[in-house]
Design a binder for these strands. Structure first.
Lengths: 353, 353
DNA sequence: TACGGTTGTCGAAACGTTTCGCACAACCTA
DNA sequence: TAGGTTGTGCGAAACGTTTCGACAACCGTA
C-alpha cells in the first residue's frame, strides 16, 4: 500500500503539504493541489486509518454492543445493527459488532481502553442498566437504543410506546371494540425490568383509559403453551374481551391455536394484534396478523447518527421517540354482536359465508 | 488513558522492557517482570490497539461484508454475524460490520486500503461472485460463508446440501412417501445463481434418485401468492405427490393456505418440510413445521475461525460443509393411503378423529 | 588473567499520519 | 526603499507501540 510519502515524492512536495492539500487543513496553491491529487489518484493512495487515528485520537469507529442472544433475539435486533451500520457508513464511520459476555462492564472497560472506538452504541438497555452510568463516568461518548428509567441528558432513540398504544387502541376502538386485553412479554422479561415490557403495559393501560374502553393486562405468556393457557384463562375471566394485543410472537401462536380449538375464528370472533413484531413475522401467520411494527432500522440509524453528532460537537441531548407502524392485516374486524359461546359458532358462520 | 511510558516510568525500566515483559517477546528477569506487571495493573494499562496495529501491521480486526438487505434477509444472516462475532471475540479479534453498497468491489478496495482490517469474511457468496477473485489478487486474507462454483483452495464454510437433501429424503421416505416435490427459492434468486438455490435443487434431485422415490422440482415460488399457485399447479400435474419441501418461508405460507382451501390437512394429506429456515420461524406455523434448520451460527463461527487460522499461519485450505439439522415438527406423517380428492375429505377424517 | 558466552536491559528507529512553528518570496504601502 | 502582509511550502515533533542492535555485568573456562 502506498503511503503519503510516496504521494509526496511523486508530486515533488513535502509530506505535510500533501496532508494539507488532501484534507483542506489550510490553503495550498491550486496548481500544487492538482498535482498532489493526481499523484494520489495514480497511486491509489488511501490514508491509513490507524496512523490517522493514532495522531488525531479519532478513529471514526463506533462499537455496537449486543447482548448475548436471548431467546427472543431476532429480526428486530438485526435491524438495529444493519440500520446503525448503514447510517454510520453513510457518514464515513465504521461499526464494530461487540458481543457482550457475562460481565458487560468489564467488557466495556476493555473495549474503551483499547483506544479503538470513538463511541459506543448501547442496545437492549434495561430500565436500571448500569452501563450508561459507567460510560458517563469514563467519559466515553455513547447513545442508546432504548432508554433507562431516568435517561437524564443522555442521547437515545426509543419506541414511542405512548403513541404506539394510542394507535393500537384507536384501531380497535375504531372497529367498535369495547374491551381490549394485553398480553405482555414473558414474566421473566418483565421481572428483568425490560423497558418495552414495562412501558408498553403502562401506556396501553393509559391509552385504553383515555379512550374509555375496558382493559385487561394480567397475562405475560412467553411461549406458545403459555399463550394458549393465558387465552383460556382470559376468556374464562373476561368473556367480553373482543380484541387482544400480544407482544410475544410465540404466545401469539398459542393464542391462535387456542382460538381455533374453541372453534372460534380470527378475526370474526377475535381481533388479534401483534405488538412490536416485524411485519415479516406477521406474514407467517394465517390469517396475516395486524402488526405494530417497531421502527428497528430507523432506531438503529438514529442511534448511530446522534452518536456521531455528539462526537462532532456537543449540542443539546437528542432524545427521539418513534412510534411503531400499524400494518393492518387480516386479523382485525369489528367485534361480533354477542359474546361467542363454545360450540359450533364457526360452522354457523361458514354456512353464511 | 495511561500509556506504556507511564508503566515504564512507574516500574523504573525502559519502555522496550515493558513491551517485552507484557508480550513475552523475549526473556525478562522474574523480579523485573513482576514489577512491571504490578505497575501495569495499578495504572489499568491497556495497550493502544492503533499503535500496536500501526507497528505490527496486524489489527486483529476482521470485516464482515454484508449485502444490502435483500427481501429475504433475516434471522439466518443475523446468525452468521453473531456467530462470527462471538468466535472472533473468543480469539481476541474484533468484527467490523461493513454494509455493501452498489459497488461491492469498490467498497472492498476502499475497506482494505484503509489498513484497518486483517481479513475479510464474505457472506452471501454467489456462484460467480467476483469478490473472491478481487481479494485473492489484492492479497487480502479472506474466507467465505457459502462458496463459489469453483472454490479452488479458498477457505469456506457452507451448508452440506448433499447431506441435507439425503436427510430430508430419508425422513419422508422413511415415513413411506413415494413422491416428493421441491419448491425452490424464487425465480429471481435462482436466476441470480444464488448458491443455495442451485445446489439444493441439484442435491434433492440426486437424493431422491438415490432413494428411488419420485421427484418434482419445477416450481420456484417466492411469495405466499406464488406458493399458493404453485401448489395448485403441483396437485393438478402430480396428484401422487404426498410430501413437499419448501425453501421460501413466504411460499410456505401460501402452500398452507392452499392446502386448507382444498379442505386438506397437514400432515394427514401432505407432509410439509421447510428447508433452510430457522426453527424459530417454523414455530410460527401451525402446525409446527418440520424444518431443516441451517447451521447459521455455526457457519459464522467456522468462517471467522478459519480466517483467523489463515492469518496466523497458512496451512492447507479449510473447506467445511455442515448439514442442516432436521427438526421434526407436526407437519410430518405417513402418506394417506389413496390420493386425496377434492371435497369433504377433511370432514370425513374430523368425524373419525 | 583474559576471553567467549549468557543474561538482562536500554535507546533509537520505525510504522503513517497530523500539526505547528518557521522560512522565504512576492507584493503592497508609506 | 524599508517594513509589513500575504501566500505558499518545508521540516520536525508527536501519537503509542514493537523491534533490533548495542552493551554492561556476570559466569565459567582455558
Amino acid at each position: 500500500m502506498s503511503s503519503i510519502h510516496d504521494v509526496a515524492e511523486r508530486a515533488q512536495v513535502a509530506v505535510s503539504t500533501v496532508s494539507a492539500a488532501l484534507n483542506g487543513t489550510r490553503p495550498v496553491a491550486a496548481a500544487t493541489k492538482r498535482r498532489i491529487q493526481q499523484a494520489a489518484a495514480e497511486l491509489g493512495y488511501r490514508p491509513n486509518l490507524l496512523a490517522q487515528g493514532l495522531q488525531s485520537k479519532r478513529t471514526r469507529i463506533l462499537a455496537l454492543l449486543f447482548p448475548a442472544p436471548r431467546s427472543g433475539f431476532g429480526l428486530t435486533e438485526m435491524q438495529f445493527a444493519t440500520g446503525a451500520a448503514e447510517a454510520a457508513s453513510e457518514l464515513g464511520y465504521h461499526l464494530l459488532l461487540s458481543p457482550e459476555n457475562a460481565d458487560p462492564i468489564e467488557e466495556l472497560r476493555h473495549l474503551t481502553g483499547l483506544g479503538l472506538v470513538d463511541g459506543v452504541l448501547l442496545m437492549e438497555v434495561g430500565l436500571d442498566d448500569e452501563r450508561p452510568e459507567f460510560l458517563s463516568a469514563a467519559g466515553v461518548a455513547f447513545s442508546m437504543i432504548g432508554r433507562t428509567r431516568e435517561p437524564g441528558s443522555i442521547d437515545y432513540a426509543d419506541i414511542d410506546f405512548a403513541a404506539t398504544a394510542r394507535d393500537a387502541v384507536a384501531h380497535v376502538a375504531g372497529l367498535g371494540h369495547r374491551k381490549l386485553a394485553f398480553f405482555n412479554l414473558s414474566t421473566d422479561t418483565y421481572a428483568a425490568q425490560y423497558g418495552p415490557a414495562i412501558r408498553a403495559e403502562i401506556e396501553f393501560a393509559e391509552a385504553a383509559r383515555a379512550a374509555g374502553i375496558g382493559y385487561v393486562d394480567d397475562f405475560r405468556p412467553g411461549s406458545a403453551e403459555e399463550g394458549r393457557k393465558a387465552f383460556e384463562e382470559l376468556v374464562a375471566a373476561h368473556p367480553d374481551v373482543t380484541a387482544l394485543a400480544v407482544m410475544d410472537d410465540h404466545a401469539a401462536v398459542g393464542v391462535i391455536a387456542a382460538v381455533a380449538a374453541r372453534g372460534w375464528r380470527i378475526p370474526e370472533d377475535l381481533t388479534l394484534l401483534l405488538v412490536l413484531s416485524s411485519a415479516r413475522v406477521a406474514e407467517m401467520f394465517h390469517p396475516r396478523l395486524t402488526t405494530l411494527e417497531p421502527p428497528s432500522a430507523e432506531l438503529g440509524r438514529l442511534g448511530a447518527r446522534m452518536l456521531i453528532d455528539r462526537l462532532l460537537d456537543d449540542g443539546p441531548p437528542q432524545q427521539r421517540l418513534v412510534p411503531c407502524r400499524l400494518v393492518v392485516g387480516d386479523s382485525s374486524a369489528p367485534p361480533r354482536d354477542e359474546p361467542p359461546r363454545d360450540g359450533p359458532s364457526r360452522e354457523e358462520r361458514t354456512a353464511s359465508a
